[in-house]
Amino acid sequence: MEAILEFFAQYPITIYMFVLAIFLGFELISKVPTVLHTPLMSGANAISGVVIIGAITLIRNTPSDDYVSLGLGFIGIVLGTINVVGGHAVTNRMLEMFKKK
C-alpha cells in the first residue's frame, strides 16, 4: 500500500496522462458507424503494437553477451512488428474497398 502511495507521489504526471488518455479514447470512438467497427478494431489493434518500442529500448540497453534477454527481445520485436505492420496493412486493405467507388 505504501509503495502505491509512493508511486502516486513520484509520478503524478504519468498518472494524469493515464487518466486523461482513457477519457480521450472514449471521446474519440464514441460515435462510430457500424461499417467501421471492423477496420477500427483492426487499426486500434495495430496501434497496440506500440509495445515494440519497449522491446527496442530494452534490446538497446542489453549487453551484447546477455543471450537470454537478446533472444527474448528479438522474439518480442518480431512479434510486435508483425502486429504493427500487418495490422496497418490489413486495415488499409479493408478501407481501400470503401474508397473505390
Binding site: 480521450l24 479514447g25 474519440l28 470512438i29 464514441s30 477500427l40 496501434i47 497496440s48
Partner: peptide
C-alpha cells in the same frame, strides 16, 4: 497509445 487502444477497445 496503449491507453487509447484500451479505452477505445472497451467502448467498441
Amino acid at each position: 497509445g496503449g491507453i487509447l487502444v484500451g479505452s477505445s477497445g472497451t467502448i467498441l
